[in-house]
């Protein structure tokens, strides 16, 4: 998981507060028709959030990983080929870059930058267990906590099982280098033991959950505390309202 365990003010916020903040920044970036100038202000605000939250270096690495391929494809494809291209900006050995396409690429990259940095501010500072507790508490349902927690927890041991199966099949001389048709026929022996085994195991897993009181009714308590405050509750309301009203103002203007 991406969560980084270190003290910081973002870490102390309730998971929902950060989620609503993410929602608001997405709404602002995509649904309010911001100009490049306002988008850069919004992007700067996100940057400030990340720096003050103490997650700058990890976020920077992630942003580079996500944006490098995007920029590499986005700039030439739109700069050269965007159907709206009319105004030449510069040419390089007969390859012509156009203003419209480049602007479109820049704007898209900035919008993505806002959403992705706001997402990172959430995922790097929120322990999944806190999110699960908050969601279970708000929904009154254990199931949703299970659906979020189980995959996160099981993923690692499942990956180990995949490696075991791969080695076993390789030892049995499974075709992994032949022509494409042969490789397709190798899919079955690789996937079937893993998939059928996991599906058959569902019976015991669900019995184990039921006998632990998964479906029990009545009030529940939680060992884990996810601190919340009136201020956060109010700001969530405010941000949600803004996330709805600002796009509407833009569309009906």
């Amino acid at each position: 998981m991406l969560f980084i365990d270190r003290p910081g003010w973002l870490h102390k916020l309730h998971p929902f507060t950060k989620l609503v903040l993410l929602l608001l920044s997405a709404a602002l970036a995509y649904l309010t028709g911001l100009s490049i100038g306002s988008l850069s202000l919004l992007l700067a605000a996100c940057l400030l959030l990340i720096i003050s939250g103490g997650i700058f270096s990890v976020s920077a690495k992630m942003v580079i990983r996500i944006f490098l391929p995007l920029i590499l494809f986005m700039v030439p494809i739109h700069g050269l080929l965007n159907p709206a291209n009319t105004t030449e900006i510069f040419s390089f050995h007969g390859i012509v870059f156009y203003r419209e396409g480049l602007f479109f690429a820049l704007k898209t990259l900035m919008q993505l930058g806002v959403v992705i940095s706001a997402s990172l501010a959430f995922v790097f500072t929120t322990h999944p267990a806190d999110l699960i507790t908050a969601v279970s508490h708000a929904s009154g349902s254990i199931s949703i906590g299970y659906l979020l927690g189980f995959p996160l927890l099981l993923l690692e041991s499942m990956r180990e099982r995949v490696v075991t199966i791969q080695n076993a099949q390789r030892a049995r001389g499974l075709e992994i280098d032949g022509n494409i048709f042969r490789r397709f026929t190798s899919l079955g022996p690789l996937l079937f033991p893993l998939l059928i085994g996991s599906i058959v195991g569902i019976e015991q897993r669900s019995i184990a959950l039921e006998v632990r009181g998964f479906k029990i009714h009545g009030p529940k308590t939680s060992l884990r505390l996810v601190p919340d405050s009136l201020l956060q509750k109010l700001s969530r309301r405010l941000m949600l309202t803004l996330a709805v009203i600002l796009p509407m103002l833009h569309f009906f203007r």
Binding site: S143, Y146, L147, F150, P151, L154, L155, M158, R159, V162, I165, Q166, I176, R183, F184, S186, L187, L190, L191, L194, L195, S198, I199, G201, I202, E203, R205, S206, L209, E210, F214, K215
Partner: peptide, 25 residues
Amino acid sequence: TTTIVLIAIAIVINMTVGQVVSMLK
């Protein structure tokens, strides 16, 4: 409960099968 467990297992399957398939190129 069976459906809930099925969904959870299927999420893990989605996330691990790629690893298996990548071996076959």
